[in-house]
Design a protein around this nucleic acid. Structure first.
Lengths: 192, 192
DNA sequence: TCGATTAAGCTAATTGCATTAGCTATTATA
DNA sequence: TATAATAGCTAATGCAATTAGCTTAATCGA
């Protein structure tokens, strides 16, 4: 078996478990059971215990998200790219609620490593904005706004906390349109 | 001593502890120590244990936020009201990171109760939008978008996960302006 | 005013999970 | 092939949540 292959398998198993049972319910015992080993054996792979494991789940999550949104924007530019990216993000969260919890969660006390982890996604957003005629600062604002919106929307949606019956798809499109209009208004100085 | 007065004191103490040490670090033992009692005694006030306590912290948080943003919009209308509300929300989170974690956190597995809890904040947002000339559906979209943005921005900011040195205040203003422009563009059909 | 009830606290005991210590078999390697 | 590293195991420890059962003080109805 190659280098970290078993380690990677464990992380993937844990990520799947997170999606199935919720991130908060991942325990050394359950994960070990799932893998057919005893929980102390997990320490042979993750000497840092649950903390290290959780951190790896988080990193794995961000790598997966990176890969999804990267694929989503290939061959697209401007509004098309932004829309594709946002949809891919939203879809990822809806398909990986537990994993996304891990990605958020670790947020809460590992700023440095999390910063690096989410940098990839931010980078892709920047690239997606590259073909617009914006200053660097405007791009930073725009990326931050998109990030905030995506994170907030996805989280609220994933928790079923949008009570109203009005279509969430419509809201998402509506918000994207609003953001894209905002970008359009900035372009150069006065276009549309 | 009146009815739930001690219960309320405990909840407030826990909320303060959450802000100081982080929500994840609230334990029955530490809370009891802080209150000068032994941890089993807490069960006299919260028979549901940590779960019930956490739920109460969450509800307390939403009540506090409601109250803050309600005050912030008093006597304001339209853009002024929206801006005041958003600033109040952002400030609340920055001053109560731990409590806000609780508010998010419980999100994760108590949809019903959380729904009711956050309803107050949503309601105030709706009122703030009442003086615009928008359809009900447009209002729903707008409130959802604002909620998503506020939650995402505040969370990312609170975790220090916005890496760039560009001013966060500027980003916040920028985003608000974008959202308000979006509202303006919808009004009636074509105003600005 | 007096006995009964309730409230709020305490100590002791239980349970479950994370983690550590120390042992063993298997694999890879010098 | 002898040896070092790998990956697993069982047993033991420690800590937090929770439950059981006891005690004291306040409250309340007759």
């Amino acid at each position: 078996m190659r280098n970290g292959s078993k380690r990677e398998t464990i992380i993937e198993t844990a990520a799947t478990m997170a999606d199935e049972k919720g991130f908060a319910n991942i325990t050394m015992k359950e994960l070990a059971d799932e893998l057919g080993i005893k929980s102390p054996s997990l320490y042979k792979h993750f000497s840092g215990g649950l903390d290290e494991l959780n951190k790896e789940i988080m990193l794995y999550g961000w790598r997966s998200l990176d890969s999804k949104i990267t694929k989503a924007v290939i061959g697209k530019a401007k509004d098309d790219a932004v829309i594709a990216l946002c949809n891919a993000y939203r879809r990822f969260v809806s398909e990986h609620k537990g994993l996304y919890e891990a990605m958020q969660w670790y947020n809460m006390y590992l700023s440095d490593e999390h910063l690096q982890a989410s940098e990839g996604a931010v980078d892709i957003m920047f690239r997606a904005l590259s073909s617009y005629d914006l200053t660097e600062e405007q791009k930073v604002h725009t990326v931050r706004m998109i990030r905030a919106f995506l994170q907030g929307f996805s989280t609220i949606e994933a928790h079923g906390a949008y009570g109203n019956p009005v279509s969430l798809d419509d809201t998402f499109d509506f918000a994207l349109k609003t953001i894209l209009n905002g970008i359009a208004d900035m372009q150069g100085g006065a276009s549309r």
